[in-house]
Design a protein around this nucleic acid. Structure first.
Lengths: 186, 186
DNA sequence: CGTCGCATGTAAACAGTTACATGATTCG
DNA sequence: CGAATCATGTAACTGTTTACATGCGACG
């Protein structure tokens, strides 16, 4: 009997297929799009993107066309294939793996009493500021998505991921406020 | 000029030093303690624990005593050294690295419209159930910490990490409720 | 007598980042 | 002319899990 395990398997494959499903892209372009849309809950580095695109092509999930641009480096534009779409679809149908549980901030908090004169206030203040910046960023994204002509089907789900970020960040700020108050009370 | 980067560096070292700062432990024991106390925001596998303990000893941050138990395997008990405590203390003083941003649930949500007839409701229902289970678990931990004679200095910080989990899980449940309602409205 | 808990450890594979190499164009 | 942006790609390194090997004692 096998137990379902909390691994973080390779999803770069699916992430790239997802973005290619919107239309052809270069490796460089994918990186930009990822940074500009899902950076809040997903990241990819060139060191993963380029080898993975090569792999996708070898497996017939994507095809590439190399273009000699009128000056500058030749660019390689990838497109998703039918088999690629099928793989993306299959992935969308199964259970996601839970995110890795590794939070250094909390680990430090947990051991604070073990150090000499540690005051975690600065660290939490910093954390709080980051979350507030995230919230501002989300507000901008909300406006941007609503103002550009996003397909309504996509829009709905994008807003849901945005909402996740908002509620989570708000909870984090609330936590920081509570904790800072308690720390100040000493 | 170097930019501070959001890496997730090796903190197994500090985690183990933290737990050893409470008192001597075996590798096996450390795993148990970690699972029973911080599993909510930190995990370690044997494959990291044993090699890391060896490393800590080589670097003079811990010492070990091998005991021949009256039957059974010999056990190796590690203790933290002064230098180990200094390293732990230094770590407690610097900024934590932000957690990795890789959430497969949200990545799936983001691409839901790209699949054929995808209804993410089941997935979110499952997510919600997990968070409710987490909340129950936190309630138990709260009682447990309060009933056993935890040093009050530690207690305060442990409760803060617990509170983080509670507020976050509550936000996640709220998100799931909102999203499920919206999905049901179609 | 089976399996669970105690207990240590390694090897292989996988996941992921960072730094580097290369080079043209455009903008200030 | 220097910096930013477009653009592709590799190599080295770090981090982490999983599966396996080994074996005793206790409990049912």
């Amino acid at each position: 009997m096998e137990r379902a395990v909390a691994r973080t398997p390779n999803r770069t494959r699916q992430a790239l297929l997802g973005f290619l499903s919107w239309g052809p892209q270069t490796g460089y372009g994918l990186r930009k799009v990822i940074d500009g849309s899902v950076s809040n809950f997903w990241t990819e580095s060139y060191g993963r993107i380029y080898p993975m695109l090569k792999e996708l092509e070898e497996e017939g999930l994507a095809t590439s066309v190399e273009r000699q641009t009128p000056g500058g480096r030749p660019t390689k534009t990838y497109s998703i294939t039918e088999r690629g779409r099928a793989e993306l679809d299959a992935w969308l149908h199964d259970e996601p793996a839970p995110p890795a549980r590794r939070n250094e901030l909390l680990l430090k908090m947990f051991f604070t009493a073990q150090g000499e004169d540690i005051d975690p206030s600065d660290m939490i203040e910093h954390f709080r500021a980051e979350k507030l910046a995230d919230l501002e960023h989300y507000a901008e994204m909300r406006e941007e998505i609503e103002s550009t002509d996003t397909p309504p089907k996509d829009m709905k789900y994008w807003m849901m991921t945005l909402r996740y970020g908002e509620l989570e960040a708000e909870a984090h700020v609330k936590w920081a406020d509570e904790v800072l108050k308690e720390l100040a009370a000493d």
